[in-house]
Design a protein around this nucleic acid. Structure first.
Lengths: 221, 221
DNA sequence: TAGATTGTTAATCGATTAACAATC
DNA sequence: TAGATTGTTAATCGATTAACAATC
């Protein structure tokens, strides 16, 4: 991508975390919070929180701190959650169906317009009130509908080619569940949910201590 | 956690990516690869690849590069994928069921031993050949079985309390799908799949350009 | 041996933390 | 006004990149 983000990835990854914690605080009736307190809650330094927030503007007030609801709303806005998105799901396997049924999904302004799958066994079934369409219909659907986001939940082998169709069809964002690093044109946003990568990191962490005991022993011996 | 990882998070997050690309290369019949070539494929610098790999040992050979299969096997070992894990799934909702049915899961040495859910509607149903048990049975199951990993796919509201039960029952790793940052004892590994965080990052990226156009305009005006 | 490419040390870059003046 | 806490600049720390000697 040629478009260079103004905000570092480290910060962007923390934004949804801020949003989650602020929602919790709001729900708990907390009206104001200092960067110090929020830091303790989130395991971050007060400094880092102020730096992060000030990438986008000065939403606090000296001597007072941050107004919880106000800051939460600003972050929702920053995250693009005050907009509506037309979403399609490509691949109606386990993951595609789980996403379709994810309640939080529809609540936050993401509305599922259509679901596609290549398998005859899945075409026509009802998922969350939507009939699964055959994959051949994907291109013509994109021609006749505005789709903002596609959930890509197809096998690795056809992920890139499907992504190409989606982008050509005007999709602006891909939520990619295929275990593949997609190559996409500038201006198309992607975010990956690499489940097996995540599981592998878990097993790495479970084994790290023993691993280095082996490595250290070998280096000495 | 008191145990300080010897390897930075940035490196750990890249390990599964190396593993994926090396498997692909192996499948494509590639026998050897240089850090240069691998870097081009993975969009990393050759230097970074050599640094990453050398956290764990010198698996390459001067003048030759890396033997694909050899390096792949070393990384599988590092990731703890040459071990077997007893896994239980806690929460048989959409996500719990999707994970249970995830084929890659069982292939890589993770074998599902039991599934639990609190809902009477789900108890007794067959998921991937396993009958869902009531949540009350969880503690006694942990008492009588060795469980390495628990997939935590319960609502946010009971995620922490369920995690506490799991840890008390001897679980060493939690694959957490609840939108919560768990507080766990040292020595228990966690990795999160925060789906809504991931979706929020996608919508952030889709909107960043327009966001800063607004911000910049406001600062000028 | 000459060429290639690693392993590793040094330099650079960027992110986090600390400090403090501005200000509510 | 005094106290608190932000916004922001400066210092530090860590990760990435560059360079090069070691060696296959």
């Amino acid at each position: 991508m040629t478009y260079k983000s103004r905000v570092s990835d480290a910060v962007v990854r923390r934004l949804p975390m801020y949003y989650r914690h602020l929602r919790e605080l709001e729900k708990a009736g907390v009206v104001r919070i200092s960067s110090q307190e929020l830091g303790e809650k989130m395991n971050l330094t007060a400094s880092q929180i102020r730096q992060d927030i000030n990438c986008f503007g000065g939403f606090g007030q000296q001597g007072y701190g941050y107004h919880v609801t106000n800051l939460k709303e600003h972050i929702a806005e920053i995250l693009g959650l005050r907009q509506h998105y037309h979403v399609i799901i490509v691949g109606a396997g386990n993951i595609g169906r789980a996403v379709a049924n994810y309640p939080r999904f529809s609540k936050e302004g993401f509305s599922i317009q259509a679901i596609f799958d290549i398998s005859a066994a899945l075409v026509g079934i009802d998922v969350h009130g939507i009939l699964v369409q055959p994959m051949e219909k994907l291109e013509s659907w994109l021609d006749t509908h505005d789709v903002d986001i596609a959930v890509l939940a197809v096998p690795a082998s056809c992920a890139q080619s499907t992504a190409d169709i989606l982008v050509k069809g005007g999709v602006r964002g891909i939520w990619n569940f295929a275990p593949v690093d997609l190559a996409l044109a500038e201006g198309v946003a992607v975010n990956n949910v690499h489940l097996s990568d995540s599981l592998n990191i878990l097993s790495y962490r479970m084994n790290e201590k023993a691993l280095f005991e082996r490595i250290d022993a070998q280096r000495k011996g």
